[in-house]
Design a binder for these strands. Structure first.
Lengths: 195, 195
DNA sequence: TAGATGACAGATTTCAAATATTGTCAGCCG
DNA sequence: CGGCTGACAATATTTGAAATCTGTCATCTA
């Protein structure tokens, strides 16, 4: 039936396809096995449970998002305030684009992320660390007022919740959303500069 | 069966009780009529539909919340920055308390608010106006840098989304939530002061 | 005669039986 | 042998028939 040996990555990809096609509620392990042309027992050789399989899917998705983000931000010769603005607007743009391009798929990944909150929490922690590094840079160079970079990174992230948290995805289709995020960003950057 | 004549306010109160008891999914017009000791036809004399009845309930609830808020903020002799901080922390506290005291009832009202987004939008607009008035005051007195008070009020409100938007109610049970809201509030107030 | 009632049609919800899925594992196949 | 299969028990989901609810209105009653 299959030439290549069945491996975890192949199964995860097939699961993504099935999720895309059937949605989170009706995507079964049997569907995944069918898509791969194997019995469902074989899937259970690589993943202990349906939950574990779905966790692998959301983990790979979030890692990809974060990869996109780090790549887009690797731009030299930008002062910390501009770098922070760039990071955050990119963060917004990546999420908004994914949510708008394929709302059903985005909704599916929201369900998976909610199912596996530990994976989501790790993702958020990694994003927070990106912010923290820039804030620390800015303080060292005098662009930002002194303070605890980790705490301020947390504050910044919380202030932009509306623009990154998937529970606000419905609001991202408004054409005003860009102006709104710019407004909050300016307010926050001013807050970091002058304390 | 009933001494006093049946009026809209009485029906709304009975509906609140039924919602409290049965939840949003299983609260029927028949239940409301039963609670009042009348036939369901009588309820339809005062409200055109079940939707209209539920809208009256959520409208009264939100008006009450806003009343509490305005009352708690009517405190003289406070500079605009402190007044703004007071308004917002009170806003948080009112919501958090309601959500923690009776999570099921809070969830019920969330459902009603989602069903009647126009009513919720009006509520938000009224809250925004409270913020705008204080920001304008602060600009007039030199506490805040000059700017468009309406736009900045919008930015401030968006920055504290996480602490007022019911979709984040689950996060409000964390003991860290107070420190987190204080952090964002300080950042935002600094932003308003020094632009 | 203003306000309340309850029978009624159509829409929605409920509940139990029928079907499908999850996860295990003894045995098969290359 | 290492990996795959498919029968199987336990659990979860779907289905559709019965029950309930929404909204209307002709009729009643105070």
């Amino acid at each position: 039936m299959r030439a290549e040996p069945l491996d975890a990555a192949t199964i995860v990809s097939a699961t993504e396809d099935v999720l895309r096609r059937h949605g989170p509620g009706k995507a079964t392990v049997l569907d995944v096995a069918r898509a791969l042309g194997v019995s469902h027992g074989s899937v259970y050789r690589h993943f202990a449970s349906k939950q574990a399989l779905r966790e692998a899917v959301i983990r790979r998705w979030l890692d990809g998002v974060r990869g996109d983000l780090v790549a887009a931000t690797r731009e030299p010769g930008l002062a910390p305030p501009d770098r922070l603005r760039r990071l955050l607007t990119t963060m917004f743009a990546v999420k908004w684009r994914k949510a708008r391009e394929d709302p059903e798929l985005f909704a599916t990944f929201r369900v998976l992320a909610a199912e596996h909150s530990a994976v989501s929490a790790a993702h958020v922690a990694a994003l927070l660390d990106l912010i923290r590094a820039i804030v620390a840079d800015g303080m060292a160079g005098g662009d930002f007022a002194p303070g605890d970079p980790a705490l301020l990174a947390r504050d910044v992230f919380h202030a932009v919740t509306r623009f990154v948290d998937p529970s606000h995805a419905a609001e991202w289709s408004s054409p005003a959303i860009e102006a709104e995020s710019d407004g909050v960003l300016s307010l926050v950057l001013d807050g970091l500069r002058a304390r």
